Amino acid sequence: MAGLGVRLVQRVSSTRAFAKVAPHVVPALDRTVHRLTGGRVLLSAQMLPGVILTTTGARSGLPRRTPLACMPEDDGRSWLLVGSNFGRTGHPAWTHNLLTHPDASISRRGRDIPVTARLLEGEERAEAWTALLVFWPPYATYQARVDREIRVFRLTRAGG
């Protein structure tokens, strides 16, 4: 039954209707539940691993917190983040923030982890993208819907 549930969520998350509603609903729910549980729970992480990314605003310089799905990498010290914006036309603001200020932090399972972000390009991005499509197939639908290349970042635990 779990496989059926995942496929259903993948199908729903690939729709244009979801892309219109989700950016307003999912992050707000995630931030609220995350705050109420002391950082231990993200609702969206029930389907995909997730983090709360804290960046420095590219223009404002203020801290910006964004709940995001992530793909943990095998080394346990890095995560891939996808700037899909649910298949909407523009790059999400958090990607601009990381390009301007790559030092950030993630909150994962109640722990704050300092990270450094790096935009993946070329062959490195292609390799990561292939793994990401296995991890969450709707990313292919999001990419097909937009003219821009969806940004992929690798976050690496700071300090080694």
Rank of each mutant, 00 (worst) to 15 (best):
C70L: 07
G39Y: 02
M71F: 06
A69P: 03
G90A: 14
H101Q: 12
L48G: 03
R64W: 08
H91E: 14
H34M: 09
G76V: 12
S84H: 04
D30K: 02
A69H: 00
A58T: 08
L80Q: 04
E73Y: 00
R31N: 08
M47E: 08
R40N: 13
P49M: 04
F86Y: 15
R88D: 04
L68E: 02
G87E: 01
L68Y: 02
T37W: 10
F86C: 08
V33W: 04
S105T: 15
A45Y: 08
L42W: 01
P63T: 09
A104G: 12
A58L: 11
C70M: 10
V82T: 11
G83R: 12
G57A: 05
V41T: 14
W94D: 07
D30P: 03
R31C: 08
T55L: 04
G83H: 00
T55G: 04
L36S: 11
L36E: 12
L48Q: 07
G57V: 06
V51Q: 09
E73V: 06
T66Y: 06
R35M: 10
S44D: 11
R88F: 03
A58I: 08
R88P: 00
G61M: 04
G90R: 14
R65H: 09
V82S: 00
C70I: 14
H96V: 10
T37M: 11
D74W: 00
T89E: 09
S60G: 05
T54Q: 15
A58C: 10
T32F: 10
T55Q: 02
P49V: 08
L36D: 14
P102W: 06
T89L: 07
L68F: 03
H91K: 01
H34N: 15
D74N: 07
T95R: 09
N85H: 15
I106M: 10
T55N: 03
